[in-house]
Design a binder for these strands. Structure first.
Lengths: 101, 101
DNA sequence: TAGGTATTTAGGGAATTTCCTAAATTTGTA
DNA sequence: TACAAATTTAGGAAATTCCCTAAATACCTA
């Protein structure tokens, strides 16, 4: 648990929003983009970039930062990279703050 | 609960350390500096700056940021400003991350 | 009131972060 | 092989953060 890296990965409005959007993709992404969606994979970079209203490279880098902090999990499948939340790490973060911070 | 403001206030190694030091002042500050210490007040700016090895103005600003985010509580007493943790807010943060993030 | 201590405010150079475009890479398909 | 789609890498301008010194302010005591 690299607390500082995790906190830094969340210290940006767009990145924090991405984490929230991925909690319930059906509530936040257009249905047609989620036709391939499975909870095991998550949502692909370009769909997240569209939702964020930012360029794909920027969002790609954000997602990379967040998975480096172990808050997101990336899965490459063909030409796509899908990202989903790492629920275990998020719960560990909550417990760390509650008990140790 | 302004989550982003809270996270930003913690997204710096020194500020994160300050929060940890204040969790147990006797373990982190020289005893002679804590002769006036009470849990109700906390630790004064210059003692925290000394511990951090940074200038007083820098640390004063850090502490201001953290109390603006409601993570620390400031109490002015005479010429000193004491800072302590806002345990309620820290627990709220943990719960927010656990249940809503 | 004068002088001393603690803190805050102001100003700014250096480092980091933000987020873009262009180019390169990876993978799928004809 | 050639081309297209998705992503990543590289490079950089603009904004923000970091953290300093100098000056101003607040409060205490003689």
């Amino acid at each position: 648990m690299e607390l500082l890296a995790i906190i830094k990965s969340l210290s940006n409005e767009t990145r924090l929003n991405i984490l929230k959007w991925l909690k319930d993709p059906f509530a936040h992404f257009p249905e047609e983009e989620l036709s391939e969606y499975t909870p095991a994979l998550g949502v692909c970079v370009s769909d997240i970039a569209k939702k964020a209203g930012m360029s794909v490279p920027t969002v790609s880098d954000y997602l990379k930062t967040m998975s480096a902090a172990n808050i997101l999990i990336a899965t490459r499948k063909g030409q796509w990279t899908y990202y989903k939340r790492n629920e275990k790490s998020i719960q560990e973060l909550a417990i760390y703050i509650k008990e140790r911070l």
